[in-house]
């Protein structure tokens, strides 16, 4: 189980990487390698060229721009989870990263790699969708911004041209006193989710739901925002019955099927987890607002 032969390039700048991408045929970008390297070892992919992004310093780092967190594509998952801005402003991300692989893979795996691999069961993909992230893409014609909803084109298919790469992801920060939850059903700790649910919600002063974002990961070909449920919840007074009704919208999801997990299972577990995630997020929002629950 050894990688096939390829030629190796390790550019030091984004421009250099983009130039290589434009020039080389059958090239693959190597980010953290936690998905690409197994595929290379198993010879599921046979690239002629590997363009290694690990020596491009400009691709890594977390910074706040207004009410947005910009995370460089090559920022390691572990560095994101430990970043003070992420910990204080984006606890959803921290909770989600707790489910991502294991410490050895988080030490190496990157957010950009995860988004471009676009495994529908990947936690970071669900988080990006839930936060209405904008993806910063660079190519020979310069940079462009793409909303996550458009970036996730189809099953493991990001909307990037062969000569483009992801430079960063911009995550709008939720209001300071929000409630959040990231829950997932995986067979073992650290496995890809069979179903994952991300929820962020805020309350108005009367305790009604002001905003609510719900995203299902793993269940469908791309991360699925639960728009009908979000509409149902917005402006409503939260209670268990309402959360149950909102969760029931998962029954209409066109769910993935595979040899071991049928679609009905994903729909049913999605309903369970949405209901639980809403309850957790609401409880946290109540606490964050100093309200009596």
């Amino acid at each position: 189980m050894k990688p096939p032969a390829f030629l190796y390039h390790d550019p030091r700048s984004i421009d250099e990487a983009v130039a290589l991408l434009a020039r080389l045929d059958n090239a693959r970008l190597l980010a953290g390698g936690q998905s690409l390297m197994p595929m290379l070892n198993m010879r599921y992919v046979l690239p002629d060229h590997i363009i290694d992004l690990n020596r491009i310093e400009a691709l890594a780092g977390v910074r706040q721009i207004g009410e947005t967190l910009r995370i460089g594509a090559m920022t390691r998952q572990r560095d994101i989870a430990e970043h003070p801005l992420v910990r204080s402003r984006l606890p959803l991300m921290v909770e989600a990263l707790g489910h991502v692989g294991h410490r050895q893979t988080r030490n190496r795996g990157t957010i950009g790699g995860s988004l471009c691999h676009l495994d529908p069961a990947a936690e970071l993909v669900a988080v990006a969708a839930n936060l209405d992230a904008t993806i910063e893409i660079v190519g020979p014609k310069g940079a462009r911004l793409l909303p996550m909803a458009e970036f996730a084109l189809g099953f493991m298919t990001p909307a990037i041209a062969p000569d483009e790469m992801v430079a960063a992801v911009n995550l709008p920060l939720p209001a300071a006193r929000h409630g959040y939850a990231f829950l997932e059903m995986a067979r073992r700790h650290g496995d890809f989710a069979i179903v994952a649910v991300a929820v962020v919600l805020t309350l108005d002063p009367a305790g009604r739901l002001a905003t609510c974002a719900i995203t299902l990961g793993g269940a469908a070909a791309v991360p699925r925002r639960m728009a009908e449920a979000e509409t149902m919840l917005r402006g409503a007074a939260p209670d268990a019955l309402l959360f149950g009704r909102a969760a029931a919208t998962a029954r209409a999801v066109d769910a993935l099927e595979d040899a071991q997990v049928p679609g009905w299972y994903r729909r049913q577990v999605a309903e369970t987890l949405i209901e639980r995630a809403l309850a957790t997020a609401h409880r946290r929002a109540v606490a964050a607002n100093g309200m009596a629950s």
């Binding site: 059903m185 067979r187 069979i194 071991q260 997990v261 049928p262 299972y265 049913q268 577990v269």
Partner: peptide
């Protein structure tokens, strides 16, 4: 026993 079988 998988979770899928138990739920089924």
């Amino acid at each position: 026993l998988s979770p899928v079988e138990i739920l089924a």
